[in-house]
């Protein structure tokens, strides 16, 4: 490794909230001896150990895979979703992105559709509801089909795979000035709409997923592209354009 490991002393400002009803507040913590080689979540683990040793309530935050694939880890770090690095989830963010004596502000995602449950953990079941309303294909089960039985163009296969890299972390909603979920919803619509297997139900899908998205209380996209800029998977704004197009066609056909 080119960079030498260093130890950082940090001033942390973390959102603490007991439960959904609590109004919450920021608390300041001093954490010393944080390795630049540790990940951001390991840094919070270290802080939590310190809190437990002091007999205080540790900070609740979502995490699971810690390798950038599950989308659980979600927090606003110094005003940016998943922190300062491009296309990096919080769990993949290293402390070498920070300097000694930095003040780091950590907040939960803020959106009406993502109510805070405790500290940094938010309820993202509105995303699940969007998926449940159409983010699937109906197939008869049985033997797996032969590979290449359904021809798919290389271009569409690539675009569908790009859309499918969405891990549903919610950074798009968190960073959107309007708290819109259109990047997420459009990625989930695109990954299916681009493939023949997904075309069958494409019109009903877009109609019902957009309906659920609106009902869950997300905002409306105004084409700022902050979502694309803060997406840890680099999901592209062209997915939203595709959803807009799919939507108008589905409405013309009365779906």
């Amino acid at each position: 490794m080119s960079q030498q490991e260093q130890l950082l002393n940090l001033n942390l400002k973390v959102w603490r909230q007991k439960n959904r009803k609590d109004s919450g507040h920021f608390e300041d913590y001093r954490l010393e001896g944080v390795s630049t080689d540790s990940s951001f979540l390991e840094m919070i683990d270290q802080l939590n150990e310190q809190l437990v040793a002091e007999n205080k309530d540790p900070i609740t935050f979502d995490h699971d895979c810690r390798e950038g694939i599950c989308g659980s880890c979600s927090m606003m770090i110094n005003g940016q979703a998943h922190g300062p690095e491009k296309q990096t989830t919080t769990c993949q963010l290293h402390m070498r992105s920070f300097k000694n004596e930095d003040t780091v502000v950590i907040e939960p995602w803020r959106a009406r559709a993502f109510p805070v449950m405790k500290d940094l953990m938010v309820d993202r079941s509105s995303f699940d509801k969007i998926i449940q309303s159409g983010g699937f294909i109906s197939v008869n089960t049985g033997n797996a089909q032969d590979a290449n039985a359904i021809p798919v163009s290389k271009e569409n296969a690539d675009l569908a795979m790009d859309a499918a890299t969405c891990i549903g972390c919610g950074a798009c909603v968190a960073s959107c000035p309007n708290a819109s979920a259109m990047l997420f919803t459009s990625a989930k619509i695109s990954q299916l709409a681009l493939l023949p297997q997904g075309r069958v139900e494409a019109e009903e899908r877009v109609s019902s997923m957009v309906k659920t998205m609106d009902e869950e209380g997300f905002g409306n996209c105004t084409n700022h592209a902050e979502c694309e800029a803060s997406c840890p998977k680099g999901i592209n704004l062209s997915n939203i354009a595709r959803m807009n197009k799919e939507y108008i066609f589905s409405k013309i056909k009365g779906k």
């Binding site: 959102w15 606003m76 005003g79 502000v105 907040e107 960073s175 902050e226 803060s230």
Partner: peptide, 10 residues
Amino acid sequence: YYNKTRTGRG
């Protein structure tokens, strides 16, 4: 947000 910075890319 208490603190919200633009990414500068959006």
